[in-house]
Each structure stands twice: as structure tokens, then as C-alpha cells.
């Protein structure tokens, strides 16, 4: 079934087509939401919300991008909204043990490996940088696709990626100095 036929059947109320659309894109949506969420509970919530919006808005899909890119834009939007909500909650819930170290986490453990440090540095990137970095360098989307997902130009996406990589290099350089590498 072509993408066009699938959309037409979903819009006509064909429940089998709805399931086909879901099956075709659930892996993509799950991967994207999981990359942003970092846990299955939130990824499941965001995947659910993404498909609810997809089915609600499918009639607005113009067809000038791939359906997967359009669905991806909704998944990104849902994920970023969820991250912002989670950030607010974390800011209000401070474990008593960590209270003294909220502003400054202190010296890094010397045995922390590069992967852990890199992943932590990605977590700490600003939202725009992190989004583009995850979508481009981790998930492999093109700048044109990322631009369509985020509502920015491909040039903006490239600039954001450049800055994200710069920030990561800075973080890793600081890590190397701390561990004496």
C-alpha cells in the first residue's frame, strides 16, 4: 500500500489502515522518543501522545515531505514538551543528599569512562543543540529532515549542530584534564 493510499484509508475511517500506519512508524517514533526520554515509561507516554496527534491531524498532512518526517516532527515536539515538564519537576525535587551539590557537581570521578561523560554532556546541552545533535549524529537524519521536524531552516540546523559539537568537545576536554589523560 502506498503512503498516499494509506493516508486516504485512514482518513476514511479504516481501522485496519490505522493499525498499518502505526505498525509502519511505531519503531521510528519509539526510537526518537526514547532517545530524548532515556527511559521506557516516558517514551511510552510520548509515543502514545505522538500517535494520538498524528491521527487527529493526518488530514492536515500536505504531502510535501515524507509522512515519516511529518510524524517525526510531532514526535520531536511531544518529546521536547515532555522534557521541559520533566526539567521543571526536577528543579523542584532535590534529594537531600544532593542538596549541597546542585549548583556544582564537584570533581568528576576519575574512573568515569568516556562514554558516560559524553552521554552526560549530551544531557546537558541546551534543548536546541541537543535536539539537532541527537537527530543528526545519533539518529542519522539529514539537515533538511531536521529542519522540517523542528520548523527551522537546514542552515539553522547545521549551525546548531556545529555549536553542539563544540560544546561536547569542550566538555570532553575538561574531562580529559580532570582525569589527567
Amino acid at each position: 500500500m502506498t503512503e498516499h493510499d494509506l493516508i486516504a484509508r485512514v482518513l476514511a475511517g479504516d481501522q485496519g489502515a490505522e493499525r498499518t500506519l502505526y505498525d509502519r512508524y511505531v519503531d521510528q517514533v519509539w526510537r526518537m522518543t526514547w532517545r530524548f526520554a532515556g527511559d521506557s515509561d516516558r517514551a511510552a507516554d510520548w509515543t502514545q501522545e505522538t500517535f494520538i496527534r498524528v491521527f487527529r491531524r493526518l488530514g492536515d498532512f500536505r504531502g510535501d515531505s515524507k509522512l515519516g518526517t511529518w510524524i517525526g516532527s510531532i514526535a520531536v515536539s511531544v518529546s521536547l514538551g515532555g522534557l521541559r515538564s520533566a526539567k521543571r519537576k526536577v528543579e523542584r525535587e532535590v534529594p537531600i543528599e544532593a542538596g549541597a551539590n546542585v549548583a556544582d557537581p564537584g570533581p568528576r570521578r576519575s574512573d568515569a569512562d568516556l562514554g558516560e561523560r559524553l552521554h552526560r554532556a549530551i544531557d546537558q546541552l541546551a534543548e536546541g543543540y541537543r535536539s539537532v545533535f541527537v537527530l543528526h549524529d545519533v539518529e542519522g537524519y539529514t539537515h533538511e529532515e531536521i529542519g522540517q521536524m523542528l520548523g527551522v531552516t537546514a542552515g539553522t540546523s547545521k549551525a546548531q549542530l556545529h555549536r553542539a559539537r563544540g560544546r561536547l568537545r569542550e566538555s570532553l576536554a575538561a574531562f580529559a584534564r580532570t582525569t589527567g589523560d
Partner: peptide, 29 residues
């Protein structure tokens, strides 16, 4: 501008997703 290939490989393990619980998710939706 690209990261070192080794770093890119490590970055791709960032929040590595497991298999999606497809049926459970569909039921929720």
C-alpha cells in the same frame, strides 16, 4: 567539524532504545 569517529560511535549509544512494546502501546493509544 565532525566528531571523531570513535566519539560518534559512542554517541550513537546515547539512550539506546530497547524494542518497543508494540501491542501494549497500541492498546494504550
Amino acid at each position: 567539524d565532525e566528531l571523531d569517529p570513535n566519539l560518534t560511535k559512542i554517541a550513537r549509544a546515547y539512550h539506546q532504545p530497547p524494542e518497543p512494546p508494540r501491542e501494549q502501546l497500541w492498546a494504550r493509544i
